[in-house]
Design a binder for these strands. Structure first.
Lengths: 140, 140
DNA sequence: TTGCTTGCAAATGATTTGCACTGCT
DNA sequence: AGCAGTGCAAATCATTTGCAAGCAA
């Protein structure tokens, strides 16, 4: 799947790229680049950044940006499943969640209304829930 | 309102800070720091950054981060109204939208379910709709 | 070979910070 | 006077990029 996605764009599915995909598939949740390198110490930082950008462009990887210091990476939704994120404001941990299908449908319907209302064409959406994760819950 | 918020935290509501709030209230949509400085050329970059950070901390300002080069700033929701964002993937333009109250309620209910499910305590949420704005709509 | 990939080291650029000065209180 | 706030210039730090070498078609 990832391979085809790259081939289609005349990109090679090199060892380094395959490795990135494997690691992203392994961790069930989005990871930062340092975390990624820790899981695959043989990868070089610059190539990792370069390949993640390239694969994001090819629709294999998704990059998540939040207030935190590092961006998080995960596999693109059409390689996995449409989902959203719980973001811990304390430690930066990101966890995946899925929403009830009916609720998702309601959202999409609402967004489609925007097409006419504002001339905006929705492509996709992201729903982030900020709060405290189980570990940080006790804190102020 | 903004003044009280700062006073409560023993922060002064200085000219520069008031200016930032005015500008943010003036533009109906989130702005980047360069845009902000363009609208208030008398402000210095470092103080603007410093005061925005300080006011974010005080709950007066909200900072939005997306893939784009600059972060966007807007007034905190409790100084305005709960809303979400349309983000143009082409030009970076961000526009505010509000969702149907019933839909918001459904979302909150869904998130509350997470409290037990994952031990996660939701504080607030952000819903971003990515796509093409009216101006960029024609593009690939 | 020919050109895409890689890794290292150096560059970039948004944001932050040190420091001396100004201005409230 | 005394301390918070400001602006300038310098520092940070995640991410990007130049370049020479490695590898695949």
């Amino acid at each position: 799947m990832a391979r085809e996605r790259l081939m289609d764009r005349d990109q090679r599915y090199t060892t380094g790229r395959r490795r990135l995909v494997e690691v992203l598939a392994g961790t069930g949740a989005p990871v930062t680049l340092p975390a990624l390198l820790a899981l695959a110490p043989d990868l070089s930082q610059s190539s990792a950044y370069r390949n993640l950008a390239l694969m994001e462009e090819a629709g294999v990887v998704r990059r998540l940006v939040h207030g935190a210091e590092h961006a998080h990476y995960e596999l693109a939704e059409d390689l996995t499943e449409h989902h959203h994120h719980l973001i811990c404001e304390e430690c930066g941990l990101i966890t995946d969640i899925t929403l009830d299908a009916a609720l998702e449908r309601s959202l999409d319907r609402a967004f489609d209304g925007l097409a006419e209302a504002a001339g905006f064409s929705p492509r996709h959406h992201a729903l982030d829930v900020f709060g405290r994760c189980a570990n940080c819950g006790a804190d102020a």
